Amino acid sequence: MTGKSKTYNERVNCYACKHFYVTWDAQMPRGCRAFGFKSVMLPSIVVKQSSGVPCMKFVQKEHKGRNG
């Protein structure tokens, strides 16, 4: 048993999503382009609290390799 809650595995990592961005707004520093909103919290948490289901618009960022 790891001690993590059942919902831990359902959590979406916004930092790994291509729709996530950091805003210039100090009051609302995190944003989601897919849903079109900014928030104090991570967008995936707002979506989960609002809808009751994990974010369904998550798209893994493509990592660009080095040309070296």
Rank of each mutant, 00 (worst) to 15 (best):
G3F: 09
G3A: 07
K4T: 07
K4S: 12
K4Y: 14
S5T: 15
S5I: 07
S5Q: 11
S5F: 10
K6V: 11
K6H: 09
T7R: 04
T7H: 05
T7G: 00
N9H: 12
N9K: 15
E10G: 00
E10N: 09
R11A: 13
R11S: 13
V12L: 04
V12P: 06
N13I: 10
N13S: 08
N13K: 11
C14N: 09
C14V: 05
Y15L: 10
Y15N: 07
A16H: 08
A16T: 12
A16G: 02
C17D: 06
C17H: 04
C17P: 10
C17N: 06
K18I: 06
K18W: 02
K18T: 11
H19R: 01
H19C: 09
V22R: 10
D25M: 03
A26I: 15
Q27M: 10
Q27G: 04
Q27R: 08
P29G: 08
R30Q: 12
G31A: 04
G31H: 06
C32M: 09
R33V: 02
R33A: 14
A34D: 02
F35Y: 15
F37H: 06
F37E: 08
F37C: 03
K38N: 14
M41Y: 14
M41A: 15
M41D: 15
M41R: 15
L42Q: 07
P43M: 04
P43V: 07
S44W: 02
I45M: 07
V46T: 13
V46A: 14
V46S: 09
V47D: 06
V47Y: 12
Q49G: 00
Q49N: 15
Q49K: 15
S50T: 14
S51A: 05
G52N: 03
G52E: 02
V53W: 02
V53H: 05
P54C: 02
M56K: 14
M56F: 03
M56L: 13
K57T: 10
K57I: 01
V59T: 11
V59P: 02
V59H: 06
V59E: 15
Q60T: 08
Q60Y: 10
Q60F: 09
K61D: 02
K61Y: 04
K61V: 11
K61F: 01
K61N: 14
E62M: 08
H63W: 07
R66A: 06
N67E: 13
N67P: 09
N67R: 12
G68R: 09
